[in-house]
Amino acid sequence: MTKSNRREFLNRSGKYILGAGLATAVSAIISGCKTMEAVTKIGTSLAVSQGLIDESQAESISKGASAVARSFQDITPEQEYYIGRTVGAMITAKYRPYDNPQANMFLNVLGQVLAQASELPETFGGYHFLILGSDEINAFAAPGGLIFVTRGMLRCCEHEDAVAAVLAHEIGHVQLKHGLQAIEKSRVTSAVTTLAIEGGKSFDRKNVVELTRTFENSISDITAALINNGYSRAFEREADKAAVKILKNVGYDPNGLVDMLNVMKGRLKPGRLDFARTHPPPAIRIAALRKHIGRYSGVKTSGPRQPRFMAVFQNI
């Protein structure tokens, strides 16, 4: 090795060690810091300026960091609100709402009480509830807190605690952001990319068209899950578990959910486009619920809640 070669070798290996050290140190900072991507960006551009890595390496590092972070969690509550509004409009286009102000108001007061006892009481546009006129046994939660319950479902409820259980289960889906998780990941990435290209200027026509296409596809992903395919069994279990917690927080008997499921069990007709298609069989849900609420004991209907429940829902 000539002298000049050796110097070059030392210089290179020095850079390598320095680079490795920098990478380790930066990643150590990153793990404790919220500005992960920003730091990655700063770190990589510094490394480039120091000649430690080249531009393409820097780009792939930055891209890697971005790809990891882009998921349903990047959808802001404001965007979730707009997604929810359109999902709600799709639902009311398919199921005619039940125009009964008294019953709808009761549902909203009850729903608000439950939402406030959930882990996500505040959403961008708040929680709102609506009865659908359909005889089908069904209930839907659009992202952000628009919740719909059919008359067929309410007829499976023999007391207020059962209605509360239905709403609490739907609030559980909102709280756990199950709707947003039904959106294909590629769409979120594509929306973010369009947004980044757009820059600070006002939307140009092409970008609005692009974003609207992504929006429409995202809505289809969610309505497909809500209306046709249902969520995974794991999501339904999670929503039932969240419901039990919400009900207990307020003082409702979580056995209200078991009572409702038992009535539903006798009424669901296999093969129909309702809860039979989109939810696990009631018996399976009841068995899973036992783990959270213990042995079944009937909900007392002698208390102060039964008269007001009957006044509103007796003839639903």
Binding site: E37, A65, S66, A69, E78, Y82
Partner: peptide
């Protein structure tokens, strides 16, 4: 687009 410290109001699905 590259940080989680900022959120833009009125951007994206709006």
């Amino acid at each position: 687009a590259s940080s989680d410290e900022l959120a833009l109001a009125g951007k994206g699905f709006n």
